[in-house]
Nucleic acid binder design. Structure first.
Lengths: 251, 251
DNA sequence: GATTTTTGTTCGTATATCGCACAAAGCGTG
DNA sequence: CACGCTTTGTGCGATATACGAACAAAAATC
């Protein structure tokens, strides 16, 4: 690929979209310039382009994203077979277990939810397709890391901001690498309130016919109601049978 | 705004992302060129840019979107107060009614789901934040159209592909405009299997403190189980009380 | 209300991108 | 395996975009 095969204006525009988040829902030209590192003139041009295309609103002072932006993510969700394939199985799984069931893939050091059947909300945050969680402290993240070769997994862990969300959170590389080894041996990952107090979850890998792990599947539960052992005893078999039904459909 | 305030490379790149959908999950350079109308050289540069940034995967022949694309839509969902504000109320509403509850806004002639608490799946399609439905034949769409001035609503209806999804679907401009008038008078919209056989739903507008309609709220139900009258009698009061609780929080 | 600071806009220029035309590489088919 | 036929990659001139600085406008501070 040559130098000229990269459209920097496009890349800059995308970085402008990503500059918006919960902490910065409404941004001025200068704000965007500060966050993205773009020149003010360039940031302005990106924002005006977004506004003109209907992806952003502009009140003369602040820009904010418009719902049209959702078309972009939706392109992925409908265009990718995996989320659509998994959804009915998650619905089933959620029905059988009485808890929320989700599927995710890895993107950098985060997991990205690609499908979800939520039952009752046990977490303080709301999760949807597109939601992200750090890989190092989520059950699905650990399953996906365990499926990689050790070197890559280690470098992802090293590049993660491994903060202790709760007293239970494993944060050292050594502990986490040992945990990954355990997950490889037992074939599932369990998180006991490492992400949030009161939240337990169990995850297993989903593999295609060549044996490559292409996603993770999980079921979440409330800590006081269910112990880790109960979770393994009750949910794991249902999850595994869901995965087996699913297996034939995966390329 | 001047001519030079528009970055065409950015706009072209966005149209490339939107070219992917359920029918076209994997696209070659030529495919993209055909769908978007861009020059092949340009389409190629856009795709290579997406691939280099990690938003797309390339196997040497076909491009497909990667989960990183979800960051873009997620920017909107977390950056916009409304979806996050509505979510807990939808959870509540879904809990109380035992059915799915959703919120949406208008984008062109479609409604876009911005939050949802799904209970049991009554529809054949799966809905998530970002999902789109035609406004003319959905309860929330009708509520949002009814809130606009008649001329604008009419022109949206005229520009919609008003196909009859079921024998119940209202498709003529006259019928739909009359329906909007009724909705304005009674303050809610009811759909009786116009989108899909077996699916009924009821929607109400959500207004900010200035009285502007900023979203619609709905509850869906299964036709054989619940009649339209029962829906109005049972769900409408709960929905209205949810909206009232919510009202104080809206700017 | 004057001064300072911050923010938004404009402009000329260097440069990167566009689109065209051509070259190369697959891909079936006879 | 040579032949069209389709798809993909590349070089180049024309053109549009990004940069940086300078200017204008608006807040903020005093």
């Amino acid at each position: 690929m040559r130098e000229t095969d990269f459209i920097s204006g496009f890349a800059k525009g995308l970085s402008v979209i990503e500059a918006f988040d919960a902490a910065n829902p409404r941004l001025s030209i200068t704000d965007i310039s500060r966050i993205t590192g773009l020149e003010r003139a360039t940031a302005r041009r990106c924002l005006l382009t977004l506004a003109q295309l209907g992806y952003a609103d502009y009140d003369g002072k602040f820009f904010s994203l418009s719902p049209r932006i959702l078309r972009l993510g939706h392109s992925y969700l409908t265009a990718t077979p995996l989320p659509r394939l998994l959804q009915p199985f998650l619905d089933q799984l959620s029905e059988k277990t009485g808890e929320s069931a989700s599927a995710s893939v890895l993107d950098g050091n985060e997991i990205v939810y690609i499908a979800r059947a939520s039952h009752k909300r046990v977490m303080s945050i709301n999760l949807n397709p597109g939601s992200r969680l750090p890989a190092y402290c989520s059950s699905m993240g650990r399953v996906l890391l365990a499926a990689m070769n050790e070197g890559d997994a280690k470098s992802i862990l090293e590049n993660s901001n491994r903060k202790a969300n709760t007293p239970n959170t494993k944060t050292t590389i050594a502990d986490l690498m040992a945990e990954l080894q355990l997950i490889r041996e037992q074939g599932y990952a369990v998180i006991d309130q490492e992400l949030e107090i009161g939240l337990c979850s169990i995850a297993i890998p989903v593999r295609n016919m060549r044996g490559t792990t292409i996603a993770a599947l999980n079921v979440g539960a409330q800590a006081p109601r269910v112990t880790v052992d109960e979770m393994v005893a009750t949910y794991l078999p249902v999850m595994q049978s869901t995965r087996d039904t699913l297996a034939g459909l995966l390329v």
